[in-house]
Design a protein around this nucleic acid. Structure first.
Lengths: 237, 237
DNA sequence: TAGTGGTCTAGACCACCTG
DNA sequence: AGGTGGTCTAGACCACTAC
């Protein structure tokens, strides 16, 4: 693969294995570019990836430092900037789905706007309870234009994203998420096996593919206190 | 300022004013680098900023496209990747604080870990109700090492971040946030003027300065359904 | 003042998409 | 096959930090 990716991986490995310790000053960019036998620009690109990921930070005139580790990505915390409820976030865990509803219909106004479609373009609507390691994880309500791909209940019982990748080479590359707390209504409380009016965390998502087209509008609700999301932010430019 | 920033601003302006329309193909990188009289690398850096911000996306071999706009950053939605409750997010709005508690003490174990300090380093503890445009916005519980800067109630009544920037040249550049829903306890429900056990959205934050040091550990709670946060994610590398 | 990271260049070649 | 964006280079100068 590309040089800058290899360098990125190598330095990352050295940070994660504490070869470069937390808080320590890293070697200079000149040192690294000689070590890996690349130009300083290419090396910088590798460092930029690490900085974006929050593992290091650079100070002009001073040097590049390893960020003090902010605790490992614990199992309890789910990354808010990755796809939800997939093999990305639940490696080696058993993910099942219980399908509560599956149909097709014309979209309402909210759905037309979010998916950038006309009122005469039919959409699938489905509702699932996601179950991870035999524990209830989330209630998911999804709208997807029929024009994207043909769906059936068998597909819904596994990963829809994997199916989209295989069948129509469609990848989730961008998404807008709206996050809020609300009271569980009857449908949500039944699905999550909690009391009505108990708090839930809800994430509304519009997902976009590699061509910039919206292909999914969904709402996922999670039991209060059970599921926590984590997000690292980096404001420096 | 820097060329790539100027180019970034210029293209951004042209996108936001619909000079380059949503979904449209942008001019080639070569065209832009001639137009602005810079090298292609410098131009690319400007485009990278726009891509990171989610305004455009590039496809190798095809071109650079304006992303279909995902709705303006409505007043109702607060960005989850910016400082919370500041002039950043509440431009031209009146922000007030009601101080419920202010003291100093030694840190407990959770605070020691999150702030990377020893058990003998004192911390400030304060609790505030944040009020925006005379409406209750959030309940904030903050821990800050005394070693950072001297605080008093007067400082707490306005923006602590502004004060930190002025007094000790300290900027918030990174943060880890944990987001979850919970039931309001007595303290939170009193502060937010809601019923006990009503849902709230809570954001726990560890804030880091430009030197990679944690300087604040806080929990902010928001009324359910009133406050919604938005986050755009970009997975492409 | 010395050393570090940040910006910028002109030009080459590669990888990928579209006709 | 032609055109696009992606990677990469060697070298120069600037901005900032630390001493």
């Amino acid at each position: 693969m590309y040089k800058y990716r290899q360098i990125y991986s190598d330095i990352k490995k050295n940070i994660l294995t504490n070869h470069y310790r937390a808080g320590a000053l890293l070697p200079t960019q000149e040192f690294f570019s000689k070590k890996y036998d690349v130009s300083r620009i290419t090396l910088k690109k590798a460092l930029e990836l690490l900085e974006k990921e929050g593992l290091i930070f650079s100070k002009q005139g001073s040097g590049t430092y390893v960020r003090k580790q902010i605790g490992d990505p614990s199992d309890e915390l789910l990354p808010l900037d990755l796809p939800i409820g997939t093999t990305h976030t639940h490696r080696d865990q058993e993910i099942k789905s219980k399908i509560l509803h599956f149909s097709a219909r014309l979209p309402n106004e909210e759905e037309q706007i979010n998916l950038s479609i006309n009122s005469n373009e039919p959409v699938y609507e489905y509702k699932r309870v996601r179950i991870i390691n035999n524990k209830i994880y989330s209630f998911e309500h999804t709208i997807m234009p029929v024009s994207i791909v043909a769906l059936d209940e068998k597909v819904l019982s596994s990963s829809v994203y994997d199916y989209l990748g295989r069948e129509v080479q469609l990848q989730l590359t961008d998404a807008r998420r709206v996050i809020f707390a609300e009271k569980a209504n009857k449908e949500i409380s039944n699905a999550l096996k909690i009391e009505e009016n108990d708090p839930v965390l809800t994430i509304e998502q519009v997902a976009y593919d590699q061509n910039g087209h919206a292909f999914e509008f969904s709402k996922s609700s999670f039991q209060y206190n059970k599921t926590k999301f984590v997000l690292d932010i980096h404001l420096k430019k």
